[in-house]
Design a protein around this nucleic acid. Structure first.
Lengths: 229, 229
DNA sequence: ATATTTAGTGTATATTTTACACGCTGGACT
DNA sequence: AGTCCAGCGTGTAAAATATACACTAAATAT
């Protein structure tokens, strides 16, 4: 460890599975590759880690470049490093996933240039490199995490209905939930503020709007409270 | 991604948190550094990943070199890559933890040369590099994993008593468990074979010995069964 | 024989999870 | 104005699970 004998020309990248939720569906942002290898295939957004850059910063950078968003939920999942995973050289990638409010996603020059678009999770096509493996690992992590941390709200607009929240959980957990039991449980945590407003412009009885009380959660969490759905 | 512009001289290593269980205590195998940086400090066993080597293979290699053991439980946790984490150059490390039966640990030339020794988790000293962070992350992962997968058995000899098993869980979860409830739960899964043997040479009523039925677990798991303690 | 140490066992209570159906409310349509 | 439609909002009983708890049994040591 004390010398440079074992340093060689190699690279590491970060790949970021960017999740969004829209039209009752969990989606992931993919980009169309414009060059070999894997030209014209869909791939996860990723880029090289600069020499003096922390991994988390690199992941945030990739996210900001593509979506214009900062300070969003971002979590490292693991490293992927099969020695043959990249045809050009030895490239290890560190996989992250992030959760964004799809309505905040800003189409910018980079996202146009890289032909970014949203794909429903259940119908993601074959991806470049080992990106299907990476996506699977990140989705699995999200599935686990969402039950023990109140991160689902990262995917919803600030005001949401309980039905929207339920559909979000159903998409992520890939299961159906009972409406009454879901509401009982989520409301019993007292982390949602009833805004005493209702939806507008819907062709049926409008639902109440709620907001997640982050401060209250942080406070309870510090005292040992555990979110659990 | 298509060219080598972003390749630079760097390195990646694997660091392996090797857990063992002995005398009712969860332990970790540390080595005493023989050279700068961090000379004479305790550190996690780790080494460079060779240019054509998979990450998992490298982690297994580190483990085998030090302990002589192969085919043991090994799980990647995450990458650590603060740009200043290594004083000599840019070194990203991939953290693994492994679970071994401490009685199988073979003291060999490498472990003598690297001055390897076991340390109780609660009293681990300050470590080189960011190795305390790595240890913490791996321990946390183990804590979560051990409740949802039957991996605790990896740390015990093939024949064990229920009290030993309970103490193992107590060390990992850092909590006390109720003897009757623990037994009820673990036995109700029907994954333990009662060997109809008892301990020998103990100065008290000898306990029954059990064995984990791995085949049965695999079979049940394939059918959707979930271990849960 | 008796003291010491750890093994092994069951029940009652509290808590959590699950299953389940109908009236309400607003807009859309005619 | 009346009716239709779609999705909202609500409570209870039964089942399953988790928790709390204390004594007798079996071996060695003295």
């Amino acid at each position: 460890m004390e010398n440079l004998d074992n340093f060689f020309k190699c690279a590491f990248t970060v790949d970021n599975v960017i999740f969004g939720f829209d039209e009752g569906d969990l989606k992931v942002l993919l980009i169309k590759r414009g060059e070999a290898p894997y030209e014209d295939m869909w791939a996860l957004p990723g880029y090289f880690v600069y020499q003096t850059e922390d991994l988390d910063s690199a992941a945030n950078r990739v996210l900001a470049e593509l979506t214009g968003l900062r300070n969003v939920y971002l979590e490292q999942v693991k490293a992927f490093g099969r020695s043959d995973r990249h045809p050009v050289g030895r490239v290890i990638t560190i996989a992250y996933y992030s959760l964004i409010k799809i309505s905040d996603y800003k189409i910018n020059a980079a996202s146009i240039a890289r032909k970014a678009s949203w794909h429903s999770i259940p119908t993601v096509p074959e991806l470049a490199f080992d990106h299907n493996d990476i996506l699977t690992a990140c989705f699995k992590r999200l599935k686990r995490r969402v039950r023990g941390r109140p991160i689902g709200f990262e995917l919803l607009p600030p005001k949401f209905t309980l039905t929207e929240l339920q559909h979000l959980y159903e998409s992520i957990l890939e299961t159906e939930l009972d409406k009454r039991n879901f509401r009982k449980k989520i409301l019993s945590m007292n982390l949602l503020v009833d805004l005493e407003e209702t939806q507008e412009g819907v062709a049926h009885r409008p639902a109440r709007l709620y907001q997640f009380d982050r401060d209250k959660y942080e406070h309870l969490f510090a005292k040992g409270f555990n979110f659990e759905l």
